[in-house]
Design a protein around this nucleic acid. Structure first.
Lengths: 339, 339
DNA sequence: AAAATATATTAAAACGTTTCGATAAATCAA
DNA sequence: TTGATTTATCGAAACGTTTTAATATATTTT
């Protein structure tokens, strides 16, 4: 059947050890022998057997990618794209990525992903709002892990995050520079730290330009303590316009919400962007198919995945290093819902 | 460190073979011994090491899931959901699923997924419109594979498909029963056999009710030879309404297209569903957030994944069996864009 | 010229399983 | 009772790598 390292060794007239050395670019081997071995490998179409390799090295060669089930089932392609970024990066190395989902109600004793139950990964990426019990479990197990776009208030974990604050700040600043005065915010639950940061960016941009007087924020912001959705965007827009008909711009905590906000505004009869400008956050694919096309903060999802992979590899190589946070910067894209 | 089979054997006072037998539910082992071994395993938290196991059994325990990159990057959550269905099913067994994407321009010599290059999977699921060269490669390699929602005209491969014909037929029949007379079709490239079948279902439903006269089909159908998108839906609707203002229903080849068609109709000033009813196909998540909510043919994506997994397992166990096609049935869901 | 170091190669052990064939006791069929 | 079959257990080989320590030669340093 398939050629083994033994076959290669025999044909090259060397020992298995030597073949292994050239395979792993280790130790000393005469360049003439090396060439001979390499060409024989090529010729015999030799592929080292992963399980044998892994058995000998005591590594799994796998990385887990755990996603909250809600993120995967919903409209959001966000975390799928991040996954793809990781997959691209991992292609260059010897890593396979095992993707699975967990439910919100999570108990490490009951529904632990099987690759964790069987110790089949060297490290894990946790995408989005993942159960705290899971994070603690990994921390206790001393298994290297990276949080993606999620931070725990008290704790200090390795993390790759979006520059939510500056993205929001820039979006609102852009609206202000375009002459908007009554700029609203529509968001979901603040449990997710990103949304909190986006709100902070919104607020501080307004502060910088001295726009906040009296009950400005109360009049102009709408947040419901639930997962964001198109529906709460629509509801939020309707309610805000009733409270303050002078609103001339809305900054939304994400695109899904923004698309709802746009529906709400359209129903009210106001025009976008002439009467009211709308800016979202994330740049999910539907954003550019919306009508009007959504202005938004573009976040480079593939890059996030790539960076998460790099960080994870570093942690796996040096597990005792102090945790660090890496921030991925974002850009404003102006389409049709603002100018 | 972690307990091995040797530790268990020693503690239980038996040989490694015996432990292995109970681990694999094979051969004969006294129920008393078995219980003892099992409880020791429990107690020592024994987890058989995958790489050792795989080395001994000469299997990889992995399944590949290959997706055309376009399907993954676009709005479509369809194949991600199918993946999730497979993942659910695989959780019960010893299989990991390795997800990767391939580009349309594909050359087995250049950009073969790494788990194929290194023979790291026991079987493969191919989702959607995947390069023919890849399919042929797998066929030549004699590697078990299943096509998901895709068939090759001449060839006869293992396949799990949606009942596209009957779904379309039922949608159109429903429109006819609701009194619609001028029923249009909007679609994309017929390269994808599903779309062809959906068109056939549309046509034969019209035939059954004797609605096709003269240039009915020519007047009422719009297809562009490109991948489907919201844009071609919108364009199609606009053009069709110009050609035949009497159109009172549109059956679309999928939801993405349907959402475009709805935009197009809305711009023309006609009302949905009073003036024109619209039905899509797939029931992708955005369908129910659209305005109006989209009536569509719901396809059980998780079930497709599950069935694909089951079929693939059967093939892997019995590679010489004649290829078979399994058809997953679908249901009409009436929301707001028809009645 | 001797000692130290760098280069090149290898044999054998180790990694943790499964499985084959052997052995022996217990049960069954005649 | 004898012979055949079923039940129960085990030792050892096999799976295909990596790695350690040993050996030998070549090169550099003193």
């Amino acid at each position: 059947m398939a050629a083994t390292i033994k076959d290669i060794a025999k044909k090259a007239g060397v020992s298995m050890s030597t073949v292994s050395l050239v395979l792993n670019r280790k130790g000393y081997v005469a360049s003439e022998t090396k060439q001979r071995i390499l060409s024989i490998m090529q010729q015999m179409d030799y592929k080292p057997l992963r399980s044998a390799r892994k058995l000998a090295t005591q590594k799994t060669g796998n990385i887990g990618y755990i996603l909250w089930e809600g993120h995967f089932s919903e409209v959001e392609m966000f975390y799928s794209q991040v996954f793809l970024g990781m997959e691209y990066a991992a292609r260059k190395n010897d890593h396979y990525i095992l993707l699975t989902t967990v439910k919100e109600e999570f108990d490490p004793k009951e529904n632990l992903p099987r690759f964790l139950r069987y110790n089949d990964v060297d490290g894990v990426a946790l995408a989005g709002r993942v159960p705290h019990a899971l994070i603690e479990y990994l921390d206790n197990q001393q298994l290297p892990f990276v949080l993606i776009d999620y931070e725990l208030p008290g704790k200090n974990y390795n993390c790759v995050k979006i520059d939510n604050y500056n993205g929001a700040f820039r979006a609102v600043e852009n609206l202000i520079n375009a002459g908007r005065k009554q700029i609203a915010f529509v968001g979901g639950t603040f449990i997710h730290p990103s949304i909190k940061d986006r709100y902070r960016g919104y607020k501080e941009a307004l502060e910088k330009y001295n726009l906040i007087h009296n009950d400005y924020l109360k009049k102009n912001s709408y947040c419901e303590d639930v997962e964001t959705s198109r529906a709460i965007g629509e509801k939020g827009a309707t309610k805000l316009l009733k409270k303050n008909p002078a609103i001339d711009a809305v900054f939304c905590c994400n695109d899904t919400t923004a698309m709802g906000v746009i529906s709400g505004i359209q129903k009210s009869g106001k025009r976008i962007p002439q009467d009211i400008a709308v800016i979202g956050f994330d740049d999910i694919p539907p954003a550019k198919f919306n009508s009007p096309k959504l202005s938004t903060i573009q976040v480079p999802k593939l890059d996030i995945g790539k960076e998460a992979y790099k960080l994870l590899c570093e942690i796996m190589n040096n597990p005792s290093r102090a945790p660090q946070t890496r921030t991925i910067s974002v850009d404003l894209i102006v389409r049709e819902s603002s100018y």
